[in-house]
Simulated scan of single mutants.
Amino acid sequence: MSIKFTAIPTEIADGWRNGGTDAHGQKPEHRISDGGAPCRHCLKNIPEGKGVLLGAYKPFQSIGAFAEIGPIFICEDDCQRFESENGKLPPVIAEREQFLIRGYSADEKIDYRTGQIVKVNELPAHAEQIFALQEVAFIHIRSAAYSCFTARIDRTD
């Protein structure tokens, strides 16, 4: 089985950059990066001194108890959406130590057998174990410290 890392849609990033609103209907907050703000679109750290947009993001289509909304950063300037190559870790993930991962069903419900904090170098192997559960349709990678959405993992076959 192969996996791919999926960044937030370009439509979301472009919408915020062009004056659109976030998941709470508010304009994203403008900040300046300290060099450690992880863009959820290009999946790279936003360089120190560059503009950052901070807003609420909902990585779900459905509504309900599991459809969490939380803060994310994106580059204020246009950036290229991360495209996964053969399961290669995105820079923003590879440069950190650990993440919270959770599997979800096709109807966007958490599979309680899947939630765990994993070391980055073990992430692909854990993702494959989670995908061995037929009920799991996708996996979220979230910050281990703050539980903020980072990226999604999908099967490629």
Rank of each mutant, 00 (worst) to 15 (best):
S2L: 04
K4L: 12
F5D: 07
F5K: 05
T6W: 00
T6D: 09
A7Y: 00
P9H: 11
A13K: 03
G15P: 00
W16M: 07
W16I: 12
W16G: 09
G19T: 03
G19M: 05
G20S: 15
G20P: 13
D22T: 04
A23M: 03
A23V: 13
P28S: 05
P28C: 01
H30I: 09
R31Q: 04
I32S: 08
I32V: 13
I32T: 15
I32C: 04
I32K: 08
S33T: 15
S33F: 01
A37F: 07
P38M: 03
C39A: 06
H41A: 03
C42R: 11
C42D: 07
L43W: 09
L43A: 11
K44R: 09
K44G: 01
K44T: 05
N45G: 06
N45F: 15
P47N: 11
E48P: 08
E48M: 14
G49C: 08
G49F: 02
K50N: 10
K50G: 04
G51C: 02
L54A: 11
L54W: 07
Y57K: 00
Y57L: 09
K58M: 14
Q61L: 08
Q61W: 03
S62A: 08
I63G: 15
I63Y: 14
I63C: 03
A65I: 05
F66Q: 05
A67K: 08
G70Q: 02
P71V: 15
I72W: 00
E76A: 13
D77Y: 06
C79A: 12
R81Y: 00
E83C: 01
G87A: 09
P90G: 10
P90L: 00
P91L: 06
I93Q: 06
A94C: 04
E95K: 11
E95A: 12
E95G: 11
E97G: 12
E97M: 03
E97T: 15
Q98T: 04
L100G: 11
R102T: 06
Y104G: 07
Y104R: 01
Y104V: 05
S105L: 02
A106N: 15
A106E: 06
D107N: 09
D107E: 13
D111M: 02
D111A: 01
Y112K: 00
R113M: 02
G115I: 08
I117F: 04
V118T: 06
V118N: 05
N121H: 15
L123D: 11
P124D: 06
A125I: 02
H126Y: 13
A127S: 15
E128Q: 11
Q129W: 02
Q129S: 09
I130V: 08
E135P: 05
E135A: 14
V136H: 00
V136N: 01
F138M: 03
I139D: 01
I141V: 14
R142A: 10
A144D: 13
T150Y: 07
A151D: 09
I153C: 04
D154P: 01
D157H: 10
D157F: 05
